[in-house]
């Protein structure tokens, strides 16, 4: 594939590595199958994740959406699962590299907000930088501020950065987790039903955020809320029982899907 050639033509600056034109492939999954012991949860899923866009993965409960997402940052194996197939990030196989390095570039926001309870808001955001080390204090402060601003949380917490991470409301905690992910400067952000534990107002804020973030990052979002997928994403993949049924532009999927199964799911006939 000509992915590598395309990418090499981009200028060599930090921001440029993220701002590639929409349509360039950032991540490529080929024949990905995932197992929990003997149980097969994903069957030969292949798709491309376009740079600087939002890919939504939809499907009924248990169809393997979260499992697939976790294959993209090697979190599936943390729960003891195994993966076969290939996943490329900018042309490099993430399963041939150390998982720690992969996760620095592919971040994840979880369904239930999970800020570290023993740390302050500041420390929660700074933790990723501290682990990777060698960051002087003032740069730390700058990065924390930038990340919190990007996550649209700065104004609400700028005076209370010392308070515990769990002292915030659910929606705020989720934005804190997003800020934490942004602080390590990933290229891809995976979101596993980020708003499902939140109330409608908080959900709207998260969706706004996604729209802002896609300028600089590549986003893959798993959601069981079809309207949300239609609102925020550029492309959509429909998974059913561990198989990829259809993968296309969001507009097409929701207005004129090619497969019957997709149509039935969209119109609520099952799921």
């Amino acid at each position: 594939m000509s992915i590598e050639i395309l990418e090499r033509n981009m200028p060599d600056t930090a921001s440029a590595s993220r701002v590639s034109s929409y349509g360039d492939v950032k991540m490529h999954a080929r024949n990905v199958s995932a197992f929990f012991g003997k149980l097969q949860a994903l069957h030969d899923v292949s798709l491309d994740v376009a740079a600087n866009g939002v890919l939504a993965i939809i499907g009924p409960s248990g169809c393997g959406k979260s499992t697939f997402l976790r294959c993209l940052n090697r979190m599936h194996e943390v729960a003891g699962g195994t993966v076969s197939g290939t996943v490329l990030l900018d042309g490099e196989d993430i399963y041939q590299t150390d998982a720690v390095l992969v996760r620095k570039r592919v971040g994840m926001v979880f369904q239930k907000p999970n800020p570290f309870p023993t740390m302050s808001i500041f420390d929660n955001v700074a933790i990723g930088l501290r682990l990777n080390g060698g960051v002087p204090r003032n740069q730390l402060k700058e990065t924390v501020e930038r990340s919190l601003k990007q996550a649209a949380l700065w104004d609400e917490v700028k005076d209370t950065l010392d308070k515990s991470g769990v002292s915030l409301s659910g929606g705020q905690q989720q934005r804190l987790c997003i800020a934490r992910t942004l602080a390590v400067n990933p290229e891809v952000i995976l979101m596993d039903e980020p708003a499902s534990a939140l109330d409608p107002i908080a959900t709207a804020k998260i969706e706004e955020l996604i729209y802002e973030l896609k300028r600089d990052y590549t986003i893959v979002i798993v959601t069981h809320n079809m309207q949300q997928a239609a609102r925020v994403s550029d492309r959509t993949a429909f998974l059913y029982l561990g198989r990829l049924v259809e993968f296309d532009d969001t507009k097409k999927i929701f207005t004129n899907p090619s497969k019957k199964q997709t149509e039935e799911y969209i119109t609520g006939r099952f799921g």
Binding site: M10, A14, D90, V100, L101, V102, L131, N132
Partner: peptide, 15 residues
């Protein structure tokens, strides 16, 4: 150029 998987010295020390 994209950011490749470039492990730093610090990374090896952490490992």
């Amino acid at each position: 150029m994209k950011a490749a998987f470039a492990p730093s010295l610090r990374y090896y020390r952490r490992k």
